[in-house]
C-alpha cells in the first residue's frame, strides 16, 4: 500500500484502490456469492407455494369476468338494486385484487428454504454430459499443447526474426475476426454437405457426420483457443538463453532430451498458464458447442446451464450447475499447478 502511494501519489493510488475494490467486489466476489446463494435454496420446496402462479392466474381471470358483470349492471336502469349490485361486485373485485397482491408478494419474495438439494438434482444423463465436457476440455487442452508447443518453440528459437514475425502475423490475423465467424467457417467445412464431405465424396468416400459425432465441436474449439496456448509458451521459451540449448547439444544431448531437460522445465509456467486458459475457455465455452452441435450432437455442459436458466427458468438449479463447473475448473487449476510444480508467483511472472 505504501509503495503504491510512493509511486503514484495519494490521489491516484486512492483511485486505483477504489477501482480495484469495485472490480473485485462488484464483478467477481459479488456475482459469485449471489450465484452461490441462489444455488442453495429452492422456492418449489414450500408445497403450497408451487401452486401460487396458477392461483394468481385464476384470480386475474375472475377479476376480468367480474369486470364484465359490472358493465352488465351499469347497463341496467337506475335503481337502488343496481347501486347495490355494483357495490357488491366492486367489493368482490377489491377482495380478489388484495389476494392477488398477497400471493404475488410471496411469488416475488418466495420463502427460501436453504439446502444442498440443488446440487443433488443432477440426473445420470446430465452428470454424464458434465464428465464428458470436462474430459473433452482436457483433451482439447492436450491436443492444443501438442500443436502449439512446436509452433511456439519454432517462433521463439528457430525461425529468423523476420520469419518469426510472419508466423506470428498469420497466427494473429484469424483472431482479428469475430470468434463466431471463425466457428461458422468450421461449420461450413464440417457440415454434412460441407467442404470436407465434398472432398471425401470426390475421393469416393461416404460422407462423415462430423457434427453429429461431436468431433466438430472438438476441432473448432482447438482452432478457437489455440493462441491462448501459443502465446504463454512462446513468452517463456523466448526468455530461455539460447546458449543453454547449444550447451546441451554440445554435450551430446539429442533433440528430445534438450526439450525434456532444458526447454520444457524452463517453459513450465507458460505451459501451465496456456493449459489453464485453454481448459477454462473450452470447458466454459458456450458459443462454439452451440454452433457446432446444433442439436444434432449431445450438448456441452454450458448448454445445459443455459437451458436451466433461460428455458426451465430455474435459476436455482442453473446456479448449482454453474457453480459445479466453477469448482471443477478451480480443481483443474490446482491440479495443473501441482503437476507442473509451479506456484502462483511463477505464473504471475
Amino acid at each position: 500500500m505504501n509503495s503504491l502511494r510512493r509511486s503514484f501519489g495519494p490521489i491516484l493510488s486512492l483511485v486505483i484502490v477504489v477501482l480495484v475494490g469495485v472490480w473485485v467486489i462488484g464483478m467477481i466476489v459479488g456475482p459469485q456469492l449471489i450465484m452461490v446463494e441462489q444455488s442453495l435454496w429452492n422456492k418449489e420446496i414450500g408445497g403450497d407455494a408451487a401452486m401460487n402462479s396458477t392461483r394468481i392466474d385464476r384470480l386475474y381471470n375472475e377479476v376480468d369476468t367480474l369486470g364484465f358483470d359490472i358493465s352488465d349492471a351499469e347497463a341496467l336502469a337506475e335503481s337502488p338494486k343496481r347501486t347495490e349490485k355494483i357495490a357488491t361486485i366492486t367489493a368482490e373485485i377489491d377482495a380478489k385484487k388484495s389476494t392477488i397482491k398477497e400471493l404475488e408478494a410471496v411469488e416475488i419474495k418466495p420463502e427460501k428454504i436453504y439446502s444442498f438439494k440443488n446440487y443433488t438434482l443432477m440426473g445420470a444423463s446430465h452428470f454424464f454430459i458434465f464428465v464428458k465436457t470436462i474430459g473433452a476440455a482436457v483433451a482439447v487442452t492436450i491436443i492444443a499443447f501438442i500443436v502449439c508447443y512446436p509452433i511456439a518453440f519454432t517462433v521463439a528459437k528457430v525461425a529468423t526474426p523476420g520469419k518469426a514475425a510472419l508466423i506470428m502475423l498469420f497466427l494473429i490475423i484469424p483472431y482479428s475476426i469475430n470468434e463466431l465467424l471463425r466457428v461458422f467457417a468450421w461449420l461450413m467445412i464440417l457440415d454434412n454437405n460441407g467442404v470436407a464431405n465434398l472432398l471425401l465424396g470426390f475421393m469416393g468416400f461416404d460422407p462423415i457426420s462430423f457434427l453429429g459425432s461431436g468431433a466438430g465441436v472438438f476441432i473448432a474449439m482447438i482452432y478457437a483457443y489455440i493462441l491462448f496456448m501459443v502465446f504463454p509458451i512462446y513468452n517463456t521459451v523466448e526468455t530461455l538463453d539460447s546458449s543453454q540449448i547449444e550447451a546441451a547439444r554440445d554435450m551430446g544431448a539429442p533433440t528430445w532430451q534438450i526439450h525434456r531437460k532444458i526447454v520444457i522445465p524452463h517453459a513450465k509456467p507458460g505451459i501451465a498458464v496456456g493449459c489453464i486458459m485453454t481448459f477454462m475457455l473450452s470447458a466454459g465455452s458456450f458459443a462454439v458447442p452451440n454452433i457446432m452441435t446444433r442439436g444434432i450432437a449431445e450438448p456441452w455442459f454450458t448448454q445445459l446451464i443455459y437451458n436451466k436458466f433461460f428455458e426451465s427458468s430455474n435459476w436455482n438449479v442453473g446456479s448449482a450447475y454453474a457453480f459445479t463447473l466453477v469448482i471443477a475448473c478451480i480443481v483443474f487449476i490446482f491440479m495443473m499447478m501441482r503437476f507442473f510444480g509451479v506456484g502462483i508467483k511463477d505464473i504471475a511472472k
Binding site: 546458449s243 547449444e246 550447451a247 546441451a248 554440445d250 544431448a253 539429442p254 532430451q257 531437460k261
Partner: peptide
C-alpha cells in the same frame, strides 16, 4: 566442448546435475 560467454549453466539443475549432464546424455 564449448564454454559460453554467458556460461549457459542450467539454472534449474543443481551444480552436480549440471556437471553430470553430458554423462547422463
Amino acid at each position: 566442448a564449448l564454454i559460453f560467454q554467458s556460461l549457459a549453466l542450467f539454472p534449474l539443475m543443481t551444480v552436480r546435475e549440471n556437471v553430470a549432464f553430458g554423462l547422463e546424455m
